[in-house]
Computed example of a mutant assay.
Amino acid sequence: MSSELPDSAVSPPSGAGESTSGPSRRTVIASGVAVGGVVVAGGTLLAGAEEAPAAGTAPSSRVSLTVNGTRRTVTVDNRTSLLDLLREHFELTGSKKGCNAGACGACTVLVDGQRVNSCLTLAARLEGAEVTTIEGLADGDRLHPLQQAFVDQDAFQCGYCTPGQIMSGVGCIKEGHTGSPEEIREWMSGNICRCGCYVKIVRAVEQTVGRK
């Protein structure tokens, strides 16, 4: 089908019956489009003005939580992750930022005794929570049994994933998922070791529960 307008839709030549006292059809259409564009643009700008926060007033929350046995209170941007709170506000850098998307497990910590990916956990939602990081496992100079088992079994190479592996292992033991090497591997499968120390990591967990 042709996309051309029929002759009847085309404005007649000047003087061929076209009134000079009012705007032409073409002028009206063009004006309507222009006005419509202004209305849409105006509506968009208005909506944006209503939704955007004023400069320097990003939404924030005051949060009190216990980290490694110490009560902490801080005001943070509502978008702040637990990982960034630990590393940037509390200077607890043992928890590592690997993928920052919950896929590698390097940032694993315990929240109220449960394993979580701290990069995916909003700090603002942890009012009253108890957080344990790798820095909180040892008892003074005495290593946690799983930390010692990692040393004994040589269960690391570069060490970047090790804090998350250990925290996940502690959680795995508390949850009772240590019945076999296969079960340990399954329940720690969210923790990635690029150096490939999985066999020794499993042995370290087994040593901690008394099977090695």
Rank of each mutant, 00 (worst) to 15 (best):
E186R: 11
L83H: 07
R79C: 00
Q207E: 14
E18K: 07
P59D: 14
H177Y: 11
T108S: 10
C119K: 12
D141T: 08
L92T: 10
G176Q: 09
K96P: 02
V116Y: 04
F90E: 15
R79P: 00
M1E: 15
G136C: 04
K96S: 03
A106V: 09
E51I: 09
G15D: 06
D154C: 11
R203I: 01
C193N: 05
E186Q: 13
C119V: 06
G42S: 06
G179W: 02
T133S: 07
A47E: 01
K200C: 01
A138N: 12
Q207Y: 04
K212Y: 08
G190L: 05
N78V: 08
M1A: 15
V170R: 01
V40M: 10
D77C: 03
S14R: 11
A129R: 11
V33G: 08
V109A: 05
R142T: 13
V209Y: 13
K212W: 03
G15W: 05
G196N: 11
L137R: 07
S14I: 06
V131P: 01
V205K: 04
H144S: 07
G17N: 14
T70A: 07
G190D: 15
T70R: 06
A155I: 12
S168H: 15
D77V: 02
L146V: 12
N117E: 02
W187R: 15
V39G: 03
L110F: 00
G105T: 11
G128S: 11
D112Q: 05
G94E: 05
N117L: 00
L110S: 13
V28R: 15
V35K: 02
S95E: 01
G171N: 11
Q114L: 01
V63L: 12
